[in-house]
Nucleic acid binder design. Structure first.
Lengths: 387, 387
DNA sequence: GAACACTATGGGAGCGCTCCCACGATGATG
DNA sequence: CATCATCGTGGGAGCGCTCCCATAGTGTTC
């Protein structure tokens, strides 16, 4: 049986093995055992010039069928794969975009949110030949350094996740003229391209749902005030109340964490023992609130109806399952990628690959109607047992 | 609810459309407004040669203090940032590694597992100047193409997550001489470098815990047979039973999904109505099993004790909270990065940056004692209410 | 049949860096 | 004082591509 030994974490006493050096030598540029064929070699083998091979590789139409076939044969025979680094250097573009996550947002990691975004981005990028770079920014100083870093020509554009109102990185990127798309906005009139959810509409729908169900005293537990999304959700709560002609809003502040949800719920119960519904600005806070309710001997949804936001993993597994507002997360990721690619001039709807290099800029592009860089996607109410 | 309308408060629709195109133009290779300074320009400004600037940038010791200062000044004045693409081309290395996720594993996305790995990898990589590329492989053909892709000199090494017994990608990478580190093993005697959890030990501890608590009939719900990790967990279950002198194992097959957990639990209840404990090879399956138990009117842990594996998000939020086995996920990510960097000769324990280029290969390296590329990290039992 | 399109093609000139060889200056050595 | 390391340094030669200009080839038009 496979004995399991070795492996105490942190026995990093020693250094590398001889084997490592060997692998290294091969991996490095040096005289590798099996030097990869270059464009030049393909050209020679096909009996054509470098330029022609380049044209074939990049799908230019200005190549005769005979020549194209010859080149393709040579490529296949030699097992040629273009060197993307060389291509990037020559073309002045990096063929890569970065998905940037400010690290304090560990929240993003415990949520399917982040993964969903990634999946969407990746799916959209797979249609192009762009690469996805993942960058977690640990700490403010790294965040400040990043714009410069990005400008070192390794990256064509940036996808920025989880923006706070006072974040400076977006402006730094704009200054450095690095195309960027935000996930969410810093404030209402966000000038930079962004893809956001209709937080207000989602919250309004959630609260309206509670009111329709006959709930009388609907409170809300909010997210951190320095996030515009949280602000919108509170605003949606207010609007729904107003529309239904209900009185005073009942608001307790949270910060999207489970503990804050718990705390806020306790506070609410103290302030207004008779409340019969709570809209939480995140599922995780709803989980905290649920716990506080249980401790207080209140049943859900009997005594108090509960609605969350995000449709995260916890929602489905709560008891009872949590009614919540779902964001089209993967679609947001996809949309972010689309907007960025469009900004970079690398996106053609429906094309499996970016248009060949043959015809360049002059081609008149259909002008988008409406703002193609500021997008707000609808949110959807998912009804479950908690309301 | 289809329109992309913008329903946020205080929206003063500051539409700026033309700007996007502007940004694009600048970002492209063309005659950008603000061409970044090159090494050459730094050299001229500092009154030295290119080589010298390169030496300073890369921290070579063979530069006089006077010259170094002059160069550093010029760098600062010009705001010079090395072009990584050019560097990569010239040096023949990409300064980037790829974290590869076979896409069918959507499982990885709903689990904090994947995020934890990423966090670990990223943390370790941040100590070097390497970049992290994220690659989701959609489908088998893309997987087959990847090795070639990786060889196109964009990547120095690969971190491969979620390996199945019959995966061919690891071998393809090995063939192409691309350094790779697996997360988990394909089988016991995995020849490639890997970082794994002590699945067997964790499972054994979990089952031993159940037996110690006085449970008599302990069943298990297994993972898919084509994953070595699942196999090990089952084996751990068997060992614990054997050690305790218990009889026949009671095994129901699952595939790590919630549905399969539900199904397997139903099957077990039918086969052995009197069972009083179940070890599930994943938390998600435990959630499914929990549901089946509830449907069958069995209480947890009263009638049946439940233990999971992974300590995923659902575990803490189940009712009662799930006893489970935690893997040191972030540590695994970190370890994977370390092993790979070591393979690439880019890792020095404690060094904030890779050693300068001054002294190269010939330096005699201390030979490592023990196998530094095959690592198994311990798992930990987390006791909660379900047992 | 000359003048003028195009089209397909070859190949020079870089992209910005690293590598490495050569060279003068310095100091140690006999 | 000649000899020989050694150090700091400059700059040529690429890395493997893309861009683009020049050119030969093939029609087309009057």
């Amino acid at each position: 049986m496979a004995a399991v030994r070795d492996g105490q974490p942190g026995d990093s006493g020693a250094a590398r093995t001889g084997e490592a050096a060997q692998v290294t030598a091969a991996a490095r540029g040096g005289k590798a055992a099996q030097p990869r064929p270059t464009l030049e070699q393909v050209a020679r083998r096909a009996g054509v010039g470098r330029g022609t091979v380049s044209r074939v590789i990049n799908g230019s139409p200005r190549v005769s069928d005979r020549t194209r076939l010859a080149v393709e044969t040579a490529v296949a025979e030699l097992g040629y794969v273009p060197n993307r680094v060389a291509r990037a250097l020559a073309a002045g573009s990096a063929d890569a975009i970065a998905l940037v996550v400010p690290e304090p947002e560990t929240r993003f990691f415990t949520e399917p949110y982040f993964s969903g975004i990634m999946q969407g981005v990746s799916a959209e990028l797979a249609r192009t030949d762009m690469q996805l770079l993942l960058t977690l920014l640990h700490g403010q100083k790294e965040q400040d350094r990043f714009a410069q870093y990005a400008a070192s020509h390794r990256i064509d554009g940036v996808l920025l996740v989880s923006v706070h109102t006072h974040d400076t990185l977006p402006d730094l990127l704009a200054e450095a003229e690095i195309p960027a798309v935000l996930n969410g906005r810093r404030f209402a009139a966000e000038p930079l391209p962004y893809v956001d959810t209709d937080n207000l509409g989602g919250a309004r729908a959630a609260v309206a749902h509670l009111l329709e169900r006959g709930r009388e005293t609907v409170a809300t537990i909010t997210g951190p005030p320095d996030m515009y999304a949280a602000h919108c959700r509170t605003e949606g709560y207010r609007e729904a109340l107003r529309e239904a002609g209900h009185g005073e809003p009942l608001i307790a502040p949270g910060d999207f964490t489970e503990e804050s949800g718990h705390r806020a719920m306790c506070e609410l119960l103290e302030r207004r023992p008779g409340l019969d519904a709570v809209f939480c600005a995140s599922d995780v806070m709803a989980a905290g609130a649920r716990m506080a309710l249980r401790e207080a001997g209140r049943s859900v949804p009997g005594d108090v109806a509960l609605v969350g936001f995000d449709d995260s993993a916890v929602a489905r597994h709560m008891d009872p399952p949590l009614t919540t507002v779902r964001q089209p997360i993967a679609e947001m990721g996809r949309e972010m990628a689309r907007v960025l690619l469009e900004l970079l001039g690398k996106w053609t709807p429906g094309a499996a690959y970016p248009a060949g290099t043959g015809t360049t800029e002059p081609t008149p592009r259909p002008v988008a109607k409406g703002d193609r860089t500021h997008r707000v996607l609808p949110a959807e109410l998912i009804r479950r047992g908690s309301s």
